[in-house]
């Protein structure tokens, strides 16, 4: 197990370097950040050269990259063009997005798995068909539609929740945005669990468990569910990164100043320090989430452990 973790950690290094370098190149390709800084006005050549020197822009791209990475590992994410340190932006944005993601993951995991078990065990019955149709509808509606509709219904028409999230963004305020963010993944988790459960109900070891005289509850939870959750856990784990990066739309609808919001602003204003900084952290989140999934996989399925 220890060796496996070390091997996986080592494998993360080239992936991290490769993906961050690609991002660096792409943002660089957006255009001259100094020109963007001055907007419509043409900058004074001497001032521009000075800024270039200060921002390390007079060096070749690969040197800029290594310099940037070296700074990041010293905890210096640079300064946004607004003059605000990127680290400060992160300090305010990440906790919001993490909280939103936690709500979304809990919603999709708990509701998705429960619906999946129910439909998987009652294949072909009306509950199953009903939920299947519902998931199909959910998957085909884009988040910006479902988000606005739910915001209008719950926030404005029925007044159950606040339509706009306050800067404090407590967990109960994030319930509705969390559901909106989770909605599509929730449908996938439901379907994935359903298929997995349905497939495994006919498995020989489930029959053995029944023949052992175990109560139905124990057969389902201990024997059937644990085997069926392996693909679901993989999906939910990789979804953590996708949810954080994909929160842009949800965060805009509910006015949450999280990672998605900052990224959106950064891209609009060609604010490259913000964009690269946030995306670098997102890359790390993706990598760590994937590693955790693989470790959890080994816990759920002992056949993986010694491979």
């Amino acid at each position: 197990m220890g060796r496996y973790v070390i091997r996986r950690l080592l494998q993360m290094i080239p992936v991290f370097v490769g993906s961050t370098f690609l991002i660096f190149v792409m943002v660089y390709a957006l255009g001259d950040p100094v020109a963007a800084l001055f907007g419509e006005r043409a900058p004074d050549p001497a001032t521009a050269a000075q800024i270039r020197r200060d921002l390390y822009l007079d060096h070749p791209l690969w040197q800029q990259y290594t310099h940037y990475m070296a700074q990041i590992f010293q905890g210096n994410f640079g300064t946004a063009f607004t003059g605000q340190p990127v680290l400060e932006l992160m300090g305010s944005a990440w906790p919001l997005t993490i909280r939103l993601t936690i709500v979304a993951i809990i919603v999709e995991a708990v509701i998705g798995v429960i619906l999946g078990i129910i439909t998987g065990l009652r294949r072909g019955r009306s509950v199953d068909t009903g939920v299947l149709v519902l998931t199909l509808i959910v998957v085909s509606i884009p988040t910006f539609v479902s988000g606005y509709v739910l915001q209008f219904l719950f926030g404005v028409k029925w007044g159950v929740v606040n339509p706009s999230v306050s800067p404090a963004a407590s967990f109960d305020e994030l319930a509705l945005p969390g559901v909106v963010l989770a909605l599509v993944s929730l449908a996938y988790v439901t379907r994935l669990t359903r298929t997995s459960i349905a497939e495994n109900t006919r498995a020989d070891y489930v029959r053995t468990a029944v023949a052992k005289g175990l109560p139905r509850r124990r057969v389902i939870l201990r024997h059937l569910l644990r085997n069926s959750l392996i693909p679901v856990v993989t999906f939910i784990g990789t979804d953590i990164g996708a949810l954080m990066g994909g929160a842009i739309v949800t965060e805009r609808i509910f006015n949450i100043h999280g990672v998605g919001y900052q990224l959106y602003q950064g891209i609009l204003r060609q604010n490259s320090p913000t964009v690269v900084g946030f995306v670098t952290i997102l890359v790390i989140v993706f990598l760590v989430a994937n590693l955790l999934v693989d470790l959890l996989y080994a816990v759920l399925d002992p056949r993986i452990r010694y491979a």
Partner: peptide
């Protein structure tokens, strides 16, 4: 009754035993 007073042995133990326990 099952398991306690009447029990069954299956053909293929690899698939009849739970792989994750």
């Amino acid at each position: 009754l099952r398991g306690a007073r009447m029990a069954m042995i299956f053909q293929d133990a690899l698939s009849a035993l739970n792989p994750v326990l």
